[in-house]
Design a protein around this nucleic acid. Structure first.
Length: 270
DNA sequence: CGACACACCTGGATGC
DNA sequence: TGCATCCAGGTGTGTC
């Protein structure tokens, strides 16, 4: 479910509820997520004050003096702030009991998410090979072009590679390529430098707009306060196979690239 | 190194 | 109604 905009929406929603709070206890009902919930997290977090909540790629880092929780939402995860007595549902795997009678609750039906631990002054292995943040410095068309040289894989698969640029998932990859007018099936190494400059712009624009709308809710994404995302209404191609392109009226095409559903306008995108 | 298939897991939609 | 099948927003791992 969550790509960068959904994770950023989650971070912003959590911020006022977490920063300055102290964790009283960690309650684990299902330790088997993508990886087992880190024993260090369960042992270290209680008693700690939360100093900051940061996002890197699609990961959230909850910082304390003794270490940082590294959270990922996988495909179906969400984090919510709920009152202390709220009974857990079947997929509510972890609660952090806070000092204000609320819980930070991880819900994740498919259990592809994780709760890991990073020691101060170290970088978790999962964060080591990540590319630049698309909304930060260090990301532009020249970077994409440089990294794409000699690559034969589809450009859509290429921009979803987290070592190239982070945060672009299956929805926003199709959307950004539509706005840039690039056929998602085109080999990454055969996209001109100028067109990569355009693509870098549309990646930034699509992600930024999705954040403003609170992300995309297709099935189950919810912000920490329970709000859904409203970017779905602005999707130009994702999930619209057979429907008319909003720009030219041509039927939106669908194919599988890198085992992921891909959508594009065969007329607007070359 | 790059490309690709596969794995993890559950629930909802669809079709017979 | 019941059951099989397919699909889903991610990403590490193993193979070639």
């Amino acid at each position: 479910m969550p790509e960068l905009p959904e994770v950023e929406t989650t971070r912003r929603g959590l911020l006022p509820h977490l920063v300055g709070r102290r964790v009283r206890a960690v309650v684990v009902r299902q330790p088997q997520l993508r990886w087992p919930i880190a024993a260090e997290l369960v042992a270290q977090l209680p008693g700690q004050r939360i100093e900051a909540v940061e996002r890197r790629a699609k990961y959230l880092l909850v910082h304390t003096r003794v270490g940082s929780a590294l959270l990922h939402l996988g495909m179906s995860g969400s984090l919510r702030i709920v009152p202390e007595r709220t009974p857990p549902g079947p997929h509510d795997h972890v609660d952090w009991r806070l000092d204000d009678r609320h819980l930070l609750r991880l819900t994740d039906p498919r259990r592809f998410g994780c709760e890991l631990w990073q020691l101060p002054g170290t970088l978790h292995p999962l964060l080591r090979r990540l590319g630049p943040e698309p909304l930060g410095d260090g990301f532009d068309g020249d970077h994409l072009w440089q990294r794409a040289r000699g690559r034969g894989a589809a450009v859509k698969t290429f921009i979803m590679d987290q070592s190239v640029v982070v945060g672009v998932g299956n929805i926003y990859a199709s959307e950004a390529l539509f706005e840039a007018g690039i056929d998602p099936r085109r080999a990454a190494g055969r996209v001109a430098r100028e067109r990569y400059r355009r693509l870098a712009q549309t990646i930034r624009r699509v992600l930024a707009r999705a954040i403003e709308r609170g992300g995309t809710t297709l099935r189950d994404f919810i912000a920490p306060d329970g709000a859904r995302g409203y970017f779905e209404q602005e999707l130009a191609v994702y999930g619209r196979a057979g429907e008319p392109c909003r720009a030219c009226g041509t039927a939106i095409a669908q194919a599988v690239l890198g085992q992921r559903a891909t959508y594009w306008c065969p007329r607007c995108q070359r």
